[in-house]
Design a protein around this nucleic acid. Structure first.
Lengths: 178, 178
DNA sequence: GTTGACTATGCAACAAGGTGCATATAACGT
DNA sequence: ACGTTATATGCACCTTGTTGCATAGTCAAC
């Protein structure tokens, strides 16, 4: 599983406490891999036991103390190994498509509202991503590795939501008049 | 969860034994929802307890006997209710993107082979789907609900793999010369 | 001084999914 | 007789993910 590896990637970028990792997973990296704080706090001790991360208690003033984790050399090795390991594409799992198939039996009107809802959700995300693309990458992907990877992440989001919006449009045309 | 509902959809199309359901999940409907035979045989008694399916033992000659499940009226009601229930898009979970982000730290050369591998996999699937599209839907989606839903399923596959192939191409251009 | 928001960390129970193992009937080829 | 393949059904264990609950420090506002 790759929650472990997603955490390693984030810690390789910069050491962090569990709380901070959760907030990162709520934003940037969370677009590709979700994690609740309960999962996070369960996983970090396991990574420490495996020797992939080290932990240090850091007293704070004005806030509760925190435990900061950092990736170890062994962790970096494990991460590099995982990067090269062949992992199949994530198995597709689309409940909306199951619903469409159900609609073939029970009647298309059951799912039309759902398709419209999904179209709206994807269109919103798409607009947001395109705006970020214009604002931050209007003049290209940039030269440094980090910038390019951020750009590619954004592009994957754009392409993903684009194809969903298009599919919803095709589906609505085909199913609205049956 | 929607394994239950995916099974209901399949049984609404036609009654089947666990074994037959597994083979359906290995082909058509399995493109949207995967299920192992262990999952299937665990789930079917639960559906029966819930009153959503009925079971009948059918003796066979030339093969082991089988237990055939059929959807009940209560099951059809539950399915119709689920079709209308708002369900969010599946949360994105892309280990390849996590790898790309890792590559920003550890070096792009670690993931280039992976991206090429994924491109090949998606391109193969895409070619297959496009061929089916030409052969079976060359003259349009058809008039009946079932045909249109099959066409839409196919279209989602085409759009999905198309956008992946495109992303891989963009990624290779950006990452190959760093 | 109490309430709410933010920071910070965790446990327990349960649901879902994956892996490995186990069993049995029956046809077919060799 | 013997192994192979297809049909047919299941258990046990483990990992992963979700949900609900619990605790505690600090600050600002009221």
């Amino acid at each position: 599983m790759s929650l472990k590896h997603a955490i390693l990637v984030s810690l390789a970028e910069r050491p962090a406490s569990g709380y901070e990792l959760v907030s990162r997973f709520d934003r940037s990296i969370g677009y590709f891999w979700r994690a609740s704080h309960q999962q996070m706090y369960r996983e970090l001790p396991k990574l420490q036991t495996a020797g992939w991360v080290s932990a240090e208690d850091v007293p704070q003033s004005g806030k509760p103390d925190k435990r900061v984790y950092a990736i170890t050399d062994a962790g970096r090795d494990a991460l590099a190994k995982w990067l090269r390991a062949p992992v199949g594409p994530e198995p597709v799992r689309e409940s909306l498509m199951v619903k469409v198939r159900g609609a073939a039996v029970l009647g298309a009107d059951h799912v039309l509202p759902e398709i419209r809802r999904h179209r709206a959700l994807h269109a919103d995300k798409l607009a947001l991503f395109r705006q970020i693309e214009r604002e931050q990458f209007g003049d290209g992907a940039g030269d440094d590795a980090t910038g390019r990877c951020r750009y590619l992440a954004l592009r994957s989001g754009v392409l993903y939501h684009e194809s969903w919006v298009r599919w919803c449009d095709e589906a609505l045309v085909l199913l609205e008049r049956v």
